[in-house]
Simulated assay, not measured.
Amino acid sequence: MYSSGNPTNIANPINDASVQFDIKTEGGRLTLYQTTLCERLSWDQLNTVVDLDPYGYLDAYNEKDIQLICCQADASTLWLVPEVVQRKFVQSLNKSMDIKFSWVLTRDRPKGKEAVKYERSVDPSDLPDASEVEEVLNGSTNRFIVKNVYPRYFRVTGSGDVRPFEQEANDVSADLVLNRGNSEWWSLYDNNRFNVSGCGGLIGPMAIVVSEETPQGFLGETLSKSSIWGLYITFVLAVGRFIRLQCSDLRMRIPYENLPSCDRLIAICEDIYAARAEGELGVEEVLYWTLVKIYRSPHMLLEYTKLD
């Protein structure tokens, strides 16, 4: 059954990526930077003299499963928050501030989990001073820096979980800039500039993603969506139990399903029904115990069920 499902592993690359940068306080949540303009470059097709994996994190993975995600530094949406809203938001910065950075990655499989999200809150020790963010929103300056925003290397498992590399020590720091003019928009610059060559000059958010292969076919989809436990519960417990119920105690069904001819036994049953309908309860009881006696004796059962 497992082999007929053809659960062969096939490549499952990232088809789309987007980035979002939010600041959350007691006064609410504002999205400063958001872009869906991200390029996806295959690792085995990169033409760069810069070593994008100097620590050898990717040595254990197939090059066909690795992709370089490069995003534009300028946001794909304008900054349209009214000034009165900004002023009220600034008042809540000194009370509490939480910065969240998220990646949304989309693949073809597994079905139902095509889009996966990795969201991370910046450590409080790496947050900028509230006064720096306040000065940008008030128009005094146009930029502030956030340290260790997100890890550079990700691994998207076959079941659809996003996990950063545990051995990675240094996260990516970002420079947030509010561009002013006829229109206003935010820009996010990656401060680790070794990505300029690999991304063709794009200096926005960049990540190196390992998208693990996923099995195909019906069983493969079951494994991807529900893991091996889902396959076990579905086939071993449910289907296996159903098959056992159908095949168990076959010898007990022989007197009812595998006799040569049951015409005489059926005639006795019909006589019992007729006697009950006519109110002949004594005749009904005699016929009933005759039928019980026949079934209790294998020899009599064979005699009564012989073919004419």
Score class of each variant (00 low, 15 high):
Ile69Glu: 01
Asp123Thr: 12
Phe101Pro: 11
Arg87Asp: 15
Lys113Ala: 08
Val122Pro: 08
Pro110Met: 01
Lys111Ser: 15
Thr106Gly: 02
Cys70Arg: 00
Ala115Trp: 03
Ala73Leu: 07
Arg107Gly: 05
Arg109Tyr: 12
Gln72Asn: 08
Ile69Asn: 01
Lys100Glu: 11
Ser92Ala: 11
Val104Tyr: 09
Asp123Phe: 12
Leu68Glu: 05
Leu105Gly: 04
Asp74Ile: 00
Val84Met: 13
Met97Gln: 06
Arg120Gly: 05
Ile99Arg: 09
Met97Thr: 05
Leu78Tyr: 11
Gln91Leu: 12
Asp74Cys: 02
Gln72His: 11
Val84Thr: 13
Ser92Tyr: 09
Ala115Ser: 03
Lys100Tyr: 11
Trp103Lys: 02
Thr77Phe: 09
Arg87Thr: 15
Pro82Arg: 00
Leu105Arg: 03
Trp103His: 03
Leu105Asp: 04
Glu83Asn: 03
Gly112Leu: 03
Val90Glu: 09
Arg87Ser: 15
Asp123Trp: 10
Tyr118Ala: 00
Gln72Ala: 13
Lys113Gly: 06
Glu83Asp: 07
Val90Ala: 13
Glu63His: 14
Arg107Lys: 05
Ala75Arg: 01
Leu93Gly: 01
Val122Gln: 07
Arg107Cys: 05
Ile66Glu: 01
Glu119Phe: 03
Met97Pro: 04
Lys113Glu: 08
Asp65Ala: 14
Asp74Glu: 07
Asp123Leu: 09
Arg107Met: 06
Ala73Thr: 12
Gln91Pro: 07
Ser96Arg: 11
Phe101Gly: 11
Gln67Ala: 01
Asp74Trp: 02
Arg87Val: 15
Lys113Met: 07
Ala73His: 08
Arg87Met: 15
Cys71Asp: 04
Val85Ile: 06
Arg120Asn: 05
Arg107Tyr: 05
Gly112Thr: 04
Arg109Trp: 08
Phe89His: 12
Lys64Thr: 13
Cys70Ala: 03
Asp65Tyr: 09
Glu119Asp: 03
Ile66Tyr: 01
Tyr61Gly: 07
Ile66Lys: 01
Phe89Asp: 08
Val85Leu: 05
Ala115Ile: 06
Asp74His: 03
Asp74Val: 03
Val85Asn: 03
Asp108Gln: 13
Ser121Ile: 12
Trp79Gln: 03
Ser92Trp: 09
Lys100His: 11
Asp74Leu: 05
Glu114Ser: 03
Leu93Tyr: 00
Tyr61Cys: 02
Asn62Val: 15
Val116Asn: 05
Ile99Val: 13
Arg109Phe: 13
Ile69Ser: 02
Lys117Ile: 15
Trp103Asp: 04
Leu93Trp: 02
Cys70Gln: 01
